[in-house]
Write a protein that binds this DNA or RNA. Structure first.
Length: 291
DNA sequence: CACTTGACCTGTCCGC
DNA sequence: TGCGGACAGGTCAAGT
């Protein structure tokens, strides 16, 4: 669920909440979620100050004064929720019930932050992970070496987009969109929304797309991602921002989870199918099927 | 090689 | 009501 807009929303929230703070403790009962040597945690994490929060693709990077970083992937159900002790009292918090129930049974790692705050890494399905490593080694991670360009950066021009796609001419366009080595950050929600906006059927093979269609898809991906960041991301079930707040993008979605409802463009019913092994939402009138 | 499918997990929902 | 099974979706490994 956390795709680029969700991770970016979390990053922005965390930046304002944790940069400059000192980590006082890091506790985990789930080695799979936090597979770091205890001695490294003691030496390079506990006592370190947080110097910055970055994002690359769907990966979050929390940089530390020890020149180590926490590398975090939320995968499907991961959350990073910041709770200040003062939020435990009084009303008015954007997600009162969540804040008051933490830690809960999905809490995998608990970070103490001076003077009186806690950062919870929650992950119901344990697909996500937190790793502590030297900041200088992050770019050498296999994922970082292979991942494609950031779609919202200025350097990501239509020409770059087309060059990346031309690497996979025989793939279904949805599979290519989801491939992180082609473009960074697109997941299932924004793949479906972008393809609907560009009026391209997800089964179409990349090699069959015209230059105009690729150009439309380029614009659609950026438009959809930008709108979602503006709305604080998509909250379906698990996703919340760093302050516990839900995102509202799905209220603006045109096809995702809209099966049976009329296409906002032509009125035909949206259908749900499976493409590239994933649940896929299309308007079969606006997005004509291949062959 | 290029592309597709299955595994990793847990919780929820649907049908019987 | 209980229970089995399908499903959710990000990424890597294994399969075609």
């Amino acid at each position: 669920m956390p795709e680029l807009p969700e991770v970016e929303t979390i990053r922005r929230g965390l930046e304002g909440l944790i940069v400059g703070r000192k980590i006082t403790a890091a506790v985990s009962d789930t080695p799979k979620s936090f597979p770091n040597a205890a001695e490294n945690v003691e030496a390079f994490l506990v006592g370190a100050a947080i110097t910055g929060v970055r994002r690359r693709a769907k990966v979050l990077l929390i940089d530390l004064s020890t020149n180590y970083s926490l590398v975090i992937h939320l995968k499907m159900t991961g959350q990073l929720v910041y709770v200040d002790a003062s939020a435990r009292f009084g009303a008015g918090h954007p997600n009162e019930s969540l804040i008051h129930s933490l830690p809960d049974r999905s809490t995998r790692v608990t970070f103490g932050l001076a003077p009186s705050a806690t950062l919870y890494f929650n992950d119901q399905r344990k697909f996500g992970w937190v790793r502590l490593m030297p900041t200088a080694e992050v770019p050498s991670l296999p994922f970082m070496l292979k991942v494609g360009p950031e779609p919202l950066e200025a350097a990501f021009t239509p020409d770059v987009f087309m060059a990346r796609f031309s690497r996979r001419p025989r793939a279904k366009v949805k599979a290519a969109l989801l491939d992180q080595t082609v473009i960074a950050g697109v997941g299932n929600i924004y793949a479906d929304e972008s393809l609907w906006l560009a009026q391209i059927h997800p089964q179409r093979l990349v090699g069959s797309l015209s230059k105009d269609e690729l150009s439309s898809l380029y614009s659609a991906v950026r438009e959809v991602m930008n709108l979602s960041i503006e709305k604080g991301g998509s909250t379906d079930k698990n996703y919340v921002a760093a302050d516990g707040r839900a995102g509202t993008y799905l209220q603006h979605a045109n096809v995702f989870r809209k099966e049976g409802t009329p296409c906002p463009r032509c009125g035909a019913p949206i259908i749900k199918t499976k493409v590239a092994g994933r649940g896929t939402h299309v308007c079969t009138v606006c997005q004509s099927e291949p062959k």
